[in-house]
Design a protein around this nucleic acid. Structure first.
Length: 420
RNA sequence: GGAGGGUUCGCCUAGUGGCCGAUGGCGCCGGUCUUGAAAACCGGUAUGGGGAGACUCAUCGUGGGUUCGAAUCCCACACCCUCCGCCA
């Protein structure tokens, strides 16, 4: 939810952000109107309520004949108060709806446009020269590391088993991510995969992406698509102490996505699956520190990519391709030799105060006054990384070289050999 | 799944219809005293909304109801705890 004070002071700023996203500016005017109507309704109610309370206090002191007329008046007032309260409730609901409809204000410098209008900030690493590169599934099957056939047999399409060195590789990579996170002072966390509706809603995943989310009808719980959900809601309705700096976490969880509407897209291998594992970073910090914090998260992602020795590029995602909570988003895309192009392997978003306002997460400023925190998130490692790791490090004989930094996390193996 | 107990301001607690936004203790902050600290004493100590402001409104788990008036009475729900059963 955007800051209503900012909206009142500078509605044009919000309209400009909407234009950058390619979203209607009318939503901004709807919100302004709803805000005004709610304030008017509230004032009406409060005036009536104040009168009711002061008259009510006179009742016990009144003489018997005064009392009769007083009671007549207060009885009338009670009905008016009730009506005014109902009107306030209606206005509140309308405001909330209008409020939820407006996405976060885009940060200065974000490119305008949609999915293809990103800006490439840099390309890092040398792409390996591989003749007729095999794709990750072919390599993974030869290593007996990835089994999508049995995944489909047991659970359906877009499910898979990681076995043998495949399982070891994923566990090792995620452990390396946690180790790096700990090194930088993040609190390692294993988070719930099932969350209540308010947690899902608070993080903004029930808006445009509601159809992406698995819901357990019988228990009214949702399967998270990322531990961002649980980590964001972890401090909901709290006032954090940020005097020692940002509160930072690294959450490890399985993630679940319905991938509705992506039929026929990336069906081969483990690029786009219903369940995967991920280590996700999450920061709560002062709003004025958020842009720097964002760069810090990006740097940690790049450090991880360097450790697994895969070429990648960093893109500044265009406004129209941002999630509703994000003010800015950087993606790292790894080089995938079999496809001859870059594919997203990390994403980091600065949600400024947008997400925290909905989740009611605050800190105390220098004057001791509660203020809304900024939240940021970013991928540190995920199942998908196995793709560029296997493909970029494949050898002509079908084996796969293990990057040096990863070797200690896979039992010291430096090479993964095909299983015959 | 069954039975019982509970949910009040950071923590503990008082409060059974108006004097209650709410008692007391602990904690915390400030002050006095002290070479310093502790102790003692004094004062302060929820959040959100509206208003230029004096101020005002909301919030005692949540939602409804009764009443001129609800932390307090009634109904429903949620959550927590204990015990029994079941499962792992």
């Amino acid at each position: 939810m955007i800051d209503l004070r900012l909206l009142r002071e500078d509605p044009e700023l919000i309209r400009a952000s909407q234009r950058l996203r390619g979203e209607p500016t009318e939503l901004v005017d709807d919100l302004l109107r709803a805000d005004e109507e709610r304030r008017a309704a509230t004032q009406r109610f409060e005036a009536l309520r104040a009168e009711q309370r002061s008259l009510s206090k006179l009742v016990p002191k009144a003489s018997p004949d005064e009392r009769a007329s007083l009671l007549a008046r207060t009885k009338e007032l009670a009905a008016e108060v009730k009506a005014a309260e109902a009107a306030t409730g209606t206005a509140d609901d309308a405001l909330r709806q209008a409020h939820l409809a407006v996405p976060n204000v885009v940060q200065d410098g974000v490119p305008a446009g949609g999915e293809d209008d990103f800006i490439v900030l840099r390309e890092v690493g040398d792409r390996p020269a591989i003749d007729n590169p095999k794709d990750h599934l072919e390599i993974g099957e030869a290593l007996k590391a990835i089994d999508t056939e049995r995944g489909a047999k047991v659970s359906g399409s877009r499910f898979y088993f990681l076995t043998g060195v495949g399982a070891l590789l994923q566990l090792g990579m995620l452990q390396m991510a946690i180790a790096q996170a700990v090194e930088y002072g993040l609190v390692p966390s294993i988070t719930p995969s099932l969350v209540k509706p308010e947690s899902m809603e608070g993080t903004g995943f029930l808006g445009a992406h509601a159809s992406e989310v698995y819901r357990l009808e019988a228990d009214d719980l949702y399967l998270v698509g990322t531990s961002e959900v649980a980590l964001a809601a972890y401090h909901s309705n709290e006032i954090l102490n940020l005097t020692g700096g940002a509160a930072r976490y690294a959450g490890w969880s399985s993630c679940y996505r319905r991938e509705a509407g992506s039929y026929g897209k990336d069906v081969r291998g483990i690029l786009r699956v219903h369940q995967f594992d991920k280590v996700e970073m999450f920061s709560f910090c002062r709003p004025e520190e958020a842009a720097d914090e964002h760069l810090r998260l990006l740097a940690m992602q790049e450090e991880m990519l360097a450790k697994v020795e895969i070429p990648y590029r960093v893109i500044d995602v265009a406004a129209g391709d941002l999630g509703s909570s994000a003010a800015r988003k950087f993606d790292c895309e790894a080089w995938v030799p079999s496809q001859g192009r870059y594919r997203e392997v990390t994403s980091t978003s600065n949600c400024t105060t947008f997400q925290a306002r909905r989740l009611n997460i605050r800190y105390r400023d220098a004057d001791g006054k509660p203020q809304t925190v900024a939240t940021l998130n970013g991928t540190l490692a995920t199942t998908r990384w196995l793709i560029p790791i296997l493909e970029n490090h494949q050898q002509p004989d079908g084996s796969v070289r293990v990057p040096k930094a990863l070797q200690p996390y896979v039992g010291g193996r430096d090479i993964l050999e095909p299983v015959r």
